[in-house]
């Protein structure tokens, strides 16, 4: 097997401005990784997205964001439980006579339907990796974050530790799984399956630094074209402002992150707070132990002298 010569950091730059929402990436990923279909039903309020979220059996997921007048882009927030919603845009004008349809049609100029192919971010500060107690999750020679399926025991700790809701435990198989950035393909010098299948190069794969450079240039170009809401999610930030230390798989977005179900700020939660939390907890533990001891020391006990005496007598029965 020919190991790829390079082992610099590899990643994804997903440019949502050229994504056509075809879901080829989602299918290619399932096919390459032999992931099962989840079946399912048409999802109320889900636009063309019936997948809903990344999961143990869906490592690429194309989100659909409908931003159309006159709802003003008020596609209702989808409760995570997937409970059915009432009809979209309830605040539509009801008396039809006063709807000026032609005016409405003209307001359509601002209509947008955004597609975004979501994936594991391969964080520099990976919450999942920090959390994993078995070492199943490791950082590969390509600086990607990979789960070893044969080590994972399904403790599930990585799941709430990922601020992006990526990794999940398979309900049948019991192990946690997520995008490997096609570790097996990378080892063979091949482009990941999803990027390979993307017809419009919305998913761009390559050496991280190159990608970041290109992505920054893209943002600048879009700004020059008047799309000043374009920004990079996960790369190109000044130090201290990065998302999870910088995302190995980063995105070019044109709406605020929450519209795509992404947090505005994120870091490995363990990196963020485990120290303080541990100190607080240990301190509390000591206080508690001391408190218990103290409780034994208040009146109503055998007298102090007694205690002292018995102690001097050496641990009586």
């Amino acid at each position: 097997m020919s190991k790829a010569a390079v082992s610099e950091r590899l990643g994804f730059f997903t440019d949502t401005t050229v994504c056509i929402g075809c879901k080829a990436c989602e299918v290619a990923c399932k096919q390459w990784n032999d992931l099962p279909s989840d079946g399912g039903e048409l999802r109320a309020g889900g636009s063309y997205d019936n997948t809903k979220e990344l999961s143990a059996s869906t490592w690429r997921h194309v989100r659909f964001v409908e931003l159309l007048e006159p709802g003003g882009g008020n596609m209702p927030s989808l409760p995570a439980g997937g409970s059915p919603l009432p009809a979209a845009t309830p605040e539509l004008p009801s008396g039809h006579d006063d709807v000026d349809l032609l005016e409405w049609a003209e307001s359509a100029g601002g209509d947008r339907w955004l597609f975004m192919s979501d994936v594991c971010k391969h964080c520099t500060n990976a919450g999942c990796l920090d959390a994993c107690p078995t070492g199943a999750i490791f950082r590969s020679e390509f600086d990607t974050v990979v789960v070893q399926a044969d080590v994972c025991n399904g403790c599930g700790y990585c799941i709430p530790s990922c601020p992006f809701g990526v990794i999940d435990r398979d309900h049948e198989d019991g192990r946690a799984a997520k995008c490997t950035l096609c570790y097996d393909r990378l080892q063979d010098g091949l482009e990941p399956a999803c990027a390979k299948s993307c017809p419009t190069d919305s998913i761009q794969f390559g050496p991280y630094d190159q990608l970041v450079e290109r992505a920054k240039g893209r943002v600048t170009a879009l700004h020059q074209r008047g799309i000043d809401t374009a920004y990079l999610y996960g790369a190109g930030d000044t130090q201290g402002e990065e998302l999870a230390g910088g995302l190995g798989a980063f995105f070019l977005l044109t709406e605020r992150p929450e519209r795509y179900g992404l947090p505005a700020q994120a870091d490995s939660p363990i990196k963020e707070g485990v120290r303080q939390a541990t100190l607080a907890a240990m301190a509390a533990g000591l206080v508690a132990a001391a408190g218990v001891a103290a409780a034994f020391a208040v009146p109503g006990r055998p007298s102090r002298a007694n205690q002292l005496a018995s102690r001097l007598r050496g641990w009586p029965r």
């Binding site: 882009g73 596609m75 989808l78 809701g165 929450e258 519209r259």
Partner: peptide, 22 residues
């Protein structure tokens, strides 16, 4: 640009799910 998008007021709508429960 990134700072603009990631700080300040959040949008009216959050189109989740954002994260996964344990």
């Amino acid at each position: 640009a990134s700072r603009r998008a990631r700080t300040g007021a959040p949008p009216d709508v959050v189109q989740g799910p954002v994260m996964k429960p344990a």
